[in-house]
Structures are given as structure tokens and as C-alpha cells.
Design a protein around this nucleic acid. Structure first.
Lengths: 208, 208
DNA sequence: TTCTACAGTATACATGTGTGCACTGAAAAA
DNA sequence: TTTTTCAGTGCACACATGTATACTGTAGAA
């Protein structure tokens, strides 16, 4: 069986999952402590054994989100075996991630505006980390392909903005139409990468 | 003085403004009917003379948003006198819009996820209209400049996604740092436009 | 085996919530 | 002038909310 610490952790998980489920539908600010407790099958007062208020729970959700985003990056890199299109593989990983973690993703996109200040700060920190990692990837790729980019960090930020925005649509879309969405995101990302390329100097072109 | 119909309209405005103010901070789902009524300085029961519930109020907010977005487009076009950079003028108009209508903009960006289904539907319809108008503008400009674009509607969608995402940061940013943000958005938009340009065929380049 | 720490329960209370009902007073219609 | 209309009020209700206080049962330390 589970020992005491494990049991406590399990209940904590239940609370986090409950908050995620309820918050994704209505927006996190509209979820009450009592609702979360009920959804997690504990009494309202037992809630305080885990979090001192809803605000603290929300910060735990952001941690959860950060973790999952790093997992996403790892998956995307793993799935890219060197052959094929890195963009396609990444976008596919991303849309799969959104499909499999709709509640976390809703948190990410929905609470940028609207939540408490501490919450927003934590959220933007996670998004910032994600953009940084993507910047590193872009740097590496552009060096490997000898296709230098003007402003890799702006390119990364732009790609993330577009992917996150368009990715949000995936959640409410019937599954069979998601491949179309994947194609559109891929096209958008390619537009951004193409627009970020430094022009190849004419000299090189003219003397093959 | 105000006649009866005007008075009623004035109170309706107060309700809408109140809802916008409160909803922008906490997320719309977290705002109660009673709060809105109090903020608008009427009794809770008088609320029902204007809207049959909070959901209906929220749809009025979306109308408000649509109106303001069309106003934004008109302003941006008006401010562009033909000289200078159309991108710069548009982005400046946009960031000014966000600065002057922070609550409407929060509604736009914050409630895509999380609100009721009818609300989201209305919201996306407005965003869709905005993207369409921008597509038309891009078409016109690219024809005027004889620089055809691959996929104007995808370009427009991408530009809107990026501008709306980055524009959201303007609200919480101290005023004096907004010019930097404007520059970053301008760069991002230019990246997208550049990436959307059809390659100039080599033939034309080689025979001037 | 006894004792203690502590996750979870039960009960209670003040306050907030949506909404029904009967009302008022003044603008507008008759 | 009299009557009607109707935005806004006051009160009342059943129910939800956050949280304080006292409790219980059991895992794990002594």
C-alpha cells in the first residue's frame, strides 16, 4: 500500500488535476476552493493541508505546465531523427501535445490576461524559458545548415506566438480536421523562417 | 435633459463598462451579476431590465469589441497617408489602440479559452472578420507594389496572431518602454511579410 | 506497546450569490 | 388631466462560498 507521504502526494495530484479540469472550462478565476475540493473528493477544509489558498494552487499548476513544456521540447527533439523536415516533426509534436494536454494548454493561453499578478509572472517566466530553448534550437539549426538568421530570438518568439495561438484552435476542432491545422501551422512557421533568413549575397549565387 | 430611452441606454453603457473593468482584472467568468450592478450603481434586480443574464451581457461586450476593432482598422488606414512605412503606421495605431482600450483588448485575448461556447464563437467571428480585412489590405498593397504574396490570408492570420500576442504585453508595460515593443512588433511583421513574398524570378533580375 | 503527528472530517458562521415578488415615481401616451 | 409604461428599488429566499474550531483514526516514531 501507499505510505503516508505518498498518500498525501496522491491527494495533491487529485487537487491539481481537479483544478486543471474545472479551470480549463470556465477560466481559473471562476473556480472555487469548494468545487476543487469536491472534484478531488476531499472536504473543503482538508484543502488547507495542501495549499494555503487557491492562489498557491494556481502556482503549482504553472509548475506543472513548465514541466510539460520541457517534456514537449524533449519529445520534439527525440522525434527528429535528422531526416525529414524538422519543422514538420516539431509542429506535429506540438499539436499532439496540445491534443493530449488540453487543460494545461488552456491554462497557458487563457490565463495570460486575467489571472493574478504572481500567476501571470510565473506563467510568462515559463513561456520565456520555452522561447529561449527554441532560440537555441534555431541557432543550432541555422549554423548546421549554414543559413544564418537575422534575429533568432525574435524569430523564436514569433513562431511561439503563432503556434500557441493557432494551436489553441486544435482543442475545439474535431480530430479529423487537425491535420489541416498542422499544415497551416507548418506553412506559417516556414514563412517566419524564410523571412528571417539573411539574404544570400549575390556574389555567391552568381559564381557556382 | 435625457429622455427615457437615452437614460436607459446610458445605464446599459454603465453596465458594459463596469463588466469590462471587472472582467479585465479577474477574467470575465469570475465576475458576478451583483458586482457588475454595484459597479454600475444600480440594484442587482435592475440588471434584468437590460440583460437577461451575464451571458447576454458578455455578448454585448463582444459587439463592443468588434466595433472597436473596425475603428482601429479605419484609424490605421487614415493615419497612413501613402508616404512612409505602412507597417510602422499600422503597428503604431495598433499599440495605441491596445493602450487606450486595455479592457477590451484583455477581453479579446483572455477569453478565447475559458468563456462560454456562444461567447467564444462570437469572439472568433470578430477576430475572423479582422483577419479578413487585413487580408484585403495585404492583397491591395502587394498588387500596388507589384510584390505578390504566396498566401495573403495565412500571412494576415500570422500577423494578427503575433501582433495580438505581443500587443498583450503592452498593457502591463510601463508607458516609456512601449516604443521598444512597437519596434519588435514591426520587425516581426516585416519578417512575416518578407517570408510571404514570392521569390522574384531570376530571369527578371538578370535582364535589367 | 504506547505516543504523537497529521491528513482528513464534521459543524458552524458570516458573507456573497442569483432571482422572484411587490413596490414606486416619473416620463410619455391617452 | 388622467392613465399607462417601465427603469429602478427593497425585501426575501435558498443556496454557495471561505474559513475557524474541534474532532478522529491511523501510520509511523518512541
Amino acid at each position: 500500500m501507499l505510505n503516508r507521504a505518498e498518500q498525501k502526494l496522491a491527494t495533491r495530484r487529485k487537487l491539481i488535476d481537479a483544478a486543471l479540469r474545472l479551470g480549463a472550462e470556465r477560466g481559473f478565476g471562476a473556480v472555487s476552493l469548494r468545487e476543487v475540493a469536491k472534484e478531488a473528493e476531499i472536504t473543503p477544509t482538508a484543502f488547507y493541508r495542501h495549499f494555503h489558498d487557491m492562489e498557491e494552487l494556481s502556482l503549482a499548476l504553472v509548475d506543472e505546465l513548465g514541466l510539460s513544456l520541457r517534456q514537449l521540447l524533449r519529445d520534439a527533439r527525440k522525434n527528429f531523427d535528422g531526416s525529414g523536415s524538422a519543422v514538420r516533426v516539431s509542429v506535429e509534436s506540438f499539436v499532439r501535445y496540445v491534443s493530449e494536454n488540453p487543460n494545461l494548454f488552456r491554462l497557458l493561453q487563457g490565463e495570460r490576461q486575467g489571472a493574478s499578478s504572481a500567476f501571470r509572472k510565473a506563467l510568462f517566466a515559463e513561456i520565456g524559458r520555452f522561447v529561449e530553448e527554441m532560440t537555441d534550437d534555431l541557432d543550432r539549426i541555422s549554423i548546421a545548415l549554414k543559413q544564418p538568421l537575422r534575429n533568432p530570438s525574435l524569430a523564436a518568439e514569433t513562431i511561439v506566438a503563432v503556434a500557441f495561438t493557432m494551436g489553441g484552435e486544435a482543442i475545439e476542432m474535431p480530430r479529423h480536421r487537425r491535420p489541416e491545422l498542422v499544415e497551416r501551422i507548418i506553412q506559417a512557421v516556414k514563412i517566419i523562417l524564410r523571412g528571417s533568413l539573411l539574404p544570400v549575397s549575390n556574389r555567391k549565387r552568381k559564381t557556382p
